[in-house]
Computed example of a mutant assay.
Amino acid sequence: MTVIVRAFRAPGDAEAVARVRRAALPFMLVTPESLVFETEHAHPLARYRPLVAEEDGEIIGTAQVGLAHDSPEPGVGYANVYVHPERRGRGAGSAVVRAAEEYLAGAGATRVHTWVLDEPGHRAFAERLGYRAGRTAHFLRLDLAAGALPPLRTPPDGVRVVPASEFAGDPRPLFELDAETTADEPGDVAAEFTDYRHWLDETWAHPLFSPELTSVAVVDGRPVAFSAARTDGSTRYGTAMTGTARAHRGRGLAKLAKNDSLHRARNAGFTEAFTGNDAGNAPMLAVNEWFGYEICATEVRHVRTLG
């Protein structure tokens, strides 16, 4: 049996790729619609090219491959690889990595980053291919159906908490807040959001994004803290980003917004909540522990220099 690596074909491959991704990493939200959207709306500078690995016509592996176009550092590529747990050991992962590295080298990448589950087999696989370990991040899960959320509290004087849908007419203030908080996130690859039109196209319009469940703390008409929500349209809810503008930190506004969003999600019928944090982000890990989230998996970012 031979494994063949080829480019992802939308929309025909979307259902199978979503199935592989959910099986390999069930802590991240993905749908066939989101896969097609991300392929069609990727920034041109990202050179985004998802791959699939086929065995006898069955898709058993896949990878997100592209350039970190929003990083101020040149030559940063990424290849996040997923193989169905029941189809590992057949060479699909190695074949996808080789194809991804070849493509990224041609696109101008000088190094490749990849997330690897913090399990002996996964880490050994990455090390065999020449990748070295870097930062650690956690996936966290909260049982919305059974767990008790902290009660909603009255916002401080001068603060309102509203859904992001209130900014539908002009989301630019949310873009500016997202850009500021993302720039301060701990990580081994810096990111800078400067392209508002693309943010509208790729983030605000993303099929998983829920402006109704995203909560925003507002002061003097300006958003100063937020908790961005995504859902799979069924029972699973995820926090894509939670943050506060620098001038308003230390007041508990991110916690206020996230609590509001979690209550909205539970009232809407969602039963599971997921989020992720860099292991060095102690303040946000403490906030999530306060809500009752528990770590359900850990990843380690690995990197390999090309050439």
Rank of each mutant, 00 (worst) to 15 (best):
T2Y: 05
I4H: 00
I4R: 05
P11Q: 00
G12I: 02
D13K: 02
A14F: 00
R19S: 09
A23T: 04
A24V: 00
M28N: 05
V30F: 00
T31D: 10
P32V: 03
E38P: 00
E40W: 04
H41W: 01
L45K: 03
A46P: 09
Y48W: 06
L51E: 07
E54P: 02
I59Q: 02
I59D: 10
G61V: 08
T62C: 14
A63G: 02
A68F: 13
A79V: 01
A79C: 12
N80Q: 06
E86L: 14
R87F: 15
R88T: 15
R90I: 07
G91I: 14
R98V: 15
A105Y: 10
A107M: 13
A107C: 14
A109T: 01
A109P: 08
R111Y: 11
V112N: 07
H113E: 15
P120F: 04
R123T: 12
F125S: 06
E127P: 03
E127S: 06
L129V: 10
G134F: 05
H138V: 12
L142P: 10
L142C: 03
L142M: 09
L144G: 08
P151S: 13
T154W: 07
P155F: 12
A164Q: 11
S165W: 11
A168V: 08
L177A: 05
A179T: 04
D184I: 00
D184W: 02
D184C: 01
E185S: 00
A190C: 00
E192L: 02
T194N: 06
R197E: 15
R197M: 06
W199L: 03
L200K: 01
E202V: 11
W204M: 09
L208T: 12
P211D: 13
S215W: 06
R222P: 00
V224S: 09
A228C: 08
R230I: 12
D232V: 08
T239I: 13
A240R: 11
M241T: 15
M241K: 11
A254H: 13
L256F: 12
L256K: 12
A257M: 10
N259P: 08
A265E: 07
A265G: 04
A265L: 07
R266C: 04
R266K: 15
E272S: 15
E272F: 10
T275F: 14
N281F: 08
N281D: 14
V287M: 15
V287F: 13
N288P: 10
N288S: 08
E289C: 03
Y293R: 05
I295T: 12
V303L: 07
R304N: 06
